[in-house]
Design a protein around this nucleic acid. Structure first.
Ligand code: FES
Ligand code: FES
Lengths: 133, 133
DNA sequence: GTATATTCCTACTATCCAGATAGGGATATG
DNA sequence: CATATCCCTATCTGGATAGTAGGAATATAC
C-alpha cells in the first residue's frame, strides 16, 4: 500500500548522483550507467525534472544536466511531485462539492489530513537527508 | 500520487454504514444498495474485512455482517491494511540487507520515516472521525 | 423437507497504467 | 561535417485493479 513508483525512486537516485558529482552535473547516459537505470527511460525522467525546475540542461557535445540549487534546499516533495504529481489520496481532496455533503464532508477532511501529513514529511526532508544524513 | 484504491474507499463506506445501522449490523446486499457499491464486488470486500477481524458474519436467512467493537475503537489503519496490506512505500522497508549499504542505508531510513508518518496518522484516526467527527 | 436468503468460494474478463523500448529530430561543439 | 548530447513521439508489455458470473454451503421459515 502507498508504494512509490520506480520512476520516483529512479529520480531520487538521479538527483543524488548529480548532488555527488562535481559542479552538481552529469549527462543522462552517465547517470543511467552509474545508477543502473534504463537509459532511455531515464531520459524521460530527466525531462520531467527539468520541467519542474529542479535541473537545467544543455544540449550538444559537453552538454548534460545540472542541479539547480543545493541538495539541502531541494525537498523530497518537489522530486515526488515532479514525477507523479501532487499527493492526492482521493480525487475530491481538491475538488470540493463533488459529493452531496459539500465542504463539511468528514471523509474528505480525513483524506485532506492524510495528504497534509504526507506532504509535511516530504517537505521537511531534503535531498541532503538521503545522501549525507 | 499515493491514491487510495476504490476498494479501500468502499470498505470505509461499508464500515460507516454498519456503524450507523442498529446493532452495527446489515447484510451485504443492503450495504451495496444503500452505498451504491457493486454488490458482487462488495462481497469480496466484506470477506476481507472478516478475515481481518473487523466484522463477524452469519449465514442463511437473517444472516449478515456485524461490526466487532465500537467505531471509536476501529482505526482507519486497520481498514486500510485489511484491504491493501501494510503501508510500504518501497519494498526494502521491511527487507533489510537487500541493498549494499546494509542497515545504515539513508534512503531506507527516509522511507521508513514516511511509512511511520502515514501509519501514525491512520492509527490516530478512527471510524468515528469519518462518521461523527 | 422444500423454498429462500444469505455468506462464501473460484474463476473469468476488461481496462488501465507503469515500465520499458525504438527511432529519430534538434542543437551544440570542434 | 561528425559527433555527442538533449528532446520528442510512438509503441509494446506485464501486472494490477475493478468488476462480473456462477454456483456451493448454510441457516431460517413455513
Ligand atoms: S467530498 Fe469526497 S467523499 Fe465527500
Ligand atoms: S535498503 Fe532500500 S535503498 Fe538501501
Amino acid at each position: 500500500m502507498f508504494s512509490v513508483s520506480a520512476r520516483t525512486q529512479y529520480a531520487i537516485r538521479a538527483m543524488a548522483h548529480l548532488a555527488g558529482g562535481e559542479g552538481h552535473g552529469a549527462t543522462s547516459a552517465e547517470i543511467a550507467s552509474a545508477e543502473g537505470i534504463p537509459a532511455k527511460y531515464l531520459e524521460g525522467i530527466m525531462s520531467r525534472l527539468k520541467l519542474s525546475g529542479l535541473v537545467e540542461s544543455e544540449r550538444g557535445k559537453h552538454g548534460g544536466y545540472r542541479m539547480i540549487g543545493e541538495p539541502e534546499d531541494i525537498s523530497m516533495l518537489s522530486i515526488v511531485e515532479a514525477m507523479d504529481g501532487s499527493v492526492k489520496p482521493v480525487n475530491c481532496v481538491d475538488a470540493v462539492g463533488t459529493c452531496s455533503q459539500g465542504n463539511g464532508c468528514l471523509p474528505r477532511q480525513f483524506w485532506i489530513g492524510l495528504k497534509k501529513a504526507i506532504d509535511n514529511y516530504l517537505e521537511e526532508h531534503t535531498l541532503k537527508d538521503v545522501t549525507e544524513g
